[in-house]
Nucleic acid binder design. Sequence first.
DNA 1: TAATTGTTGCAACTCTGTTGCATTATTGAT
DNA 2: ATCAATAATGCAACAGAGTTGCAACAATTA
Lengths: 154, 154
Amino acid sequence: MNKKYKNALFTLQNAGLSKTPQRIAVLTSLLEATTPLSVRDISQTLAAKARIDRVTIYRILSLFKQHGIAREIASSGGTNYFEMASLENPVHPHFNCRNCGELSCMEPLTFSQSRQLISSQEDYSVDHIEINISGLCAVCRNATKLQKQQNKQV
Amino acid sequence: MNKKYKNALFTLQNAGLSKTPQRIAVLTSLLEATTPLSVRDISQTLAAKARIDRVTIYRILSLFKQHGIAREIASSGGTNYFEMASLENPVHPHFNCRNCGELSCMEPLTFSQSRQLISSQEDYSVDHIEINISGLCAVCRNATKLQKQQNKQV
DNA sequence: TAATTGTTGCAACTCTGTTGCATTATTGAT
DNA sequence: ATCAATAATGCAACAGAGTTGCAACAATTA
Ligand SMILES: [Mn+2]
Ligand SMILES: [Mn+2]
Ligand SMILES: [Zn+2]
Ligand SMILES: [Zn+2]
């Protein structure tokens, strides 16, 4: 509890972000979570302690993403989830249950390893595996390069 | 053109689905597409020929998914995309440009292979790689099993 | 033809996520 | 500690994706 709180304070300090109660609360939620959280999850978790507007949560998570503190996970349900991003918690696959909707973290294996692992466990039933890579496509990458060059010339 | 239309007819026939103009139109769109399409994409594409309600498109795509004809791809933008699913077009990674939003298909490689391929091409800039696996978690799998057993006993 | 069944279109709705703006809190200097 | 400058929050209103109920319509079958 208190340890997570201190961790939250340190993380904000380290990123040069102001330590508002809202940011500390959201960060503490992410640190305490065992699965990725949706904005709704965070909102409900924090509702007991303080009433933080969901817009604020969105803005805080967006900020955390920009600073590499948190990472966003898309789900086909339309809701996005967030989890802590760090060297100790590298990018990894997630398992999304079609029935209860739970999103859980998996070991950071490769695609084929994950598939093998999952099929070897009788308990799971895999419908679909998806790899999504995001970044800049060739066109946009070049456009950005050109812009930078032009800015230098001006 | 006509070839895609015939392919659409055959696919519906093969799945035992009635060949309505709306289903043929949506299926033809998917067959002609070079990238996964959103409901909005399909709606706009078909707007010239016929006015199909977006609810109908949702229902048709949901049906296609159930019959393994189409596959859904989640994107962090909140919009989901659809593409043909078949043995010739197996599950594969997708690249989502953060700038122009385009979603393009990648070769069906493993996670690590995709990462290597992408980093070896100067043009691309990768922000984030994500693997999402969906299906039934251990709890729901067991619950389903129990239900089936109980149904047999009744 | 008439009854049955399945499909579509429309309206209304829920939910996620975003934006503009006024209010309030944090920070850093005095 | 006080104050001004700046940053963050809350509120309201909004846009867009996706869903549901229901009536109208189309296809099938008797
Ligand atoms: Mn995770
Ligand atoms: Mn694809
Ligand atoms: Zn489950
Ligand atoms: Zn692009």
